[in-house]
């Protein structure tokens, strides 16, 4: 089995790693870089718990071979927080609107919602629900999550940080 030197930029930090051809990005993030925001839920791109940003686009890190991510610039839920601990507007509104219960889906939800608002700053409720259709939540019933994203859109339009 081949081994490869790769470079990952995660949350602004450059990491040089040697990975085996069959290692997955999600496991590298969690087990080697100790970024445990992205979660293992289903492992087959059906739940969204492992969502991370590649540039400004969301991807499911459970399906990405780490070696194929060589050179990518990634952001995890941790990376949406500034160095001095300030949350982004989506994270703030998830707290404000009680859109978090057990929290397992939350990192994936905030990452995907941030991607949505960077692409579409003023989404309708339908657009929010459509965009988040691959992120499953077993607790909240989604209503509070959608409210939080819509509120975050307003915050971002008023100069809040995305």
């Amino acid at each position: 089995m081949s081994k490869h030197r790769i470079t990952l930029t995660v949350n602004g930090e450059v990491h040089r790693l040697t990975v085996k051809s069959n290692e997955l990005l999600l496991n590298v993030l969690r087990d080697r870089l100790h970024l445990t925001g992205a979660k293992y839920g289903c492992g087959i791109a059906e739940c969204g718990a492992c969502t991370v940003l590649k540039g400004d686009e969301s991807v499911m890190s459970c399906l990405v071979p780490a070696v194929a991510a060589d050179g990518w610039e990634l952001t995890t839920a941790e990376g949406l927080v500034t160095a001095d601990g300030e949350l982004n507007v989506v994270q703030e509104e998830f707290l404000e609107k009680s859109a978090v219960q057990c929290g397992f889906c939350t990192p994936g939800m905030v990452v995907a919602s941030t991607a949505l608002l960077r692409e579409n700053p003023d989404p309708t409720e339908d657009e929010v629900r459509d965009y988040l259709r691959g992120n499953f939540c077993r607790c909240t019933g989604y209503h509070a999550i959608v409210e939080a994203v819509l509120a975050a859109a307003v915050d971002a339009q008023n100069g809040g940080r995305l």
Binding site: S2, H4, S21, N22, N27
Partner: peptide, 15 residues
Amino acid sequence: MNTRFLEKEYDYVKP
């Protein structure tokens, strides 16, 4: 069914 790791071993090439 294990979906957490890839158990299969193989070489990776990127032409």
